[in-house]
Amino acid sequence: MNNRLKRDSLKAYMFLFPAVGLILLFKIYPIIIVFGESFYKVSYLSGSKVFVGINNYLDLFFDRSFWNSVWVTTKLNLLINPIQVVIAVVMALLINMEFRGRLFYRLLFFIPLGVSLAVTTIYWSIFFRPGNGVMNYILNSVGIPRQPFFNSPSQALWIIIGIASWKGCSFWMIFILAGLKNIPREIYEACDVEGIEPIASFFYITLPLLAKTILFVFVTDTAANFMLFIPIFMITKGGPDSSTNVLMHEAYRTAMLQGDMGHGMAMIVFLMLMLMTVVAIQFKVTGEREI
């Protein structure tokens, strides 16, 4: 190693140390902690820690509530990610069109970017209030009976999906919008000259050229929704009948409320592995052709 590289390295580490040190401590080290702690059991009363090997994982295997959470997390993600991506694409296409007032609409479409998920949850929990909520009034006035919404095991998850999407779609839209802006205008001008229908040009030009952006959004959106927690924690606490008890909420409840750290950690490990598998599959299925 020559002297110059040595001197430069030292200098670089000084610049890097604060930020990279914090990242190593708070973003990387916890990954090691979560694996390590999942092999221990902490006694709630004495606070002492005992090595239990893979017992926490074995317990999970026979834990029905855990498997239910795995299923709810899977179901939520199978529904919410395609919904959000499709709506985000539609929104991005809309405000990318050239028609009067689109700047105004764009401003409106950006609003959820500044609204936190907790506040979003409050708004929509009022709207969907079982009994005398606004949505029930609207349904009633067109002759549909009152719905229980988040008091019903079959509807609660849909309400959670709606709340998360109100916030999520706008966020993912800005990525799609940037992808659209990267498509050269000349291509569309050529389409116009050739007399190609807009719908055909969307499927044969826009969509293929947008594939990489959409894949990115799809993967990041999945990662975000695997950890969806706020609306579930605020409205349903996982209920009714555990129908919204996603893995993240189950892990929080086990580790923080019941104080069973070892089990909670094992759940987090499972959640991380599950997410990594899903992302790998997404890349394999969609990625091979385009990236």
């Binding site: 590289l5 430069d8 670089a12 990387i28 902690i33 979560v34 950890m227 929080y252 991380m272």
Partner: peptide, 26 residues
Amino acid sequence: NFVGKGILFSIVLSSFLMPPDVLVIP
């Protein structure tokens, strides 16, 4: 140009691809 740039860069990159909430409990 410094020693370990590649490794440190991939650490930085992977840290922001990991959703933060998953690590709240550890």
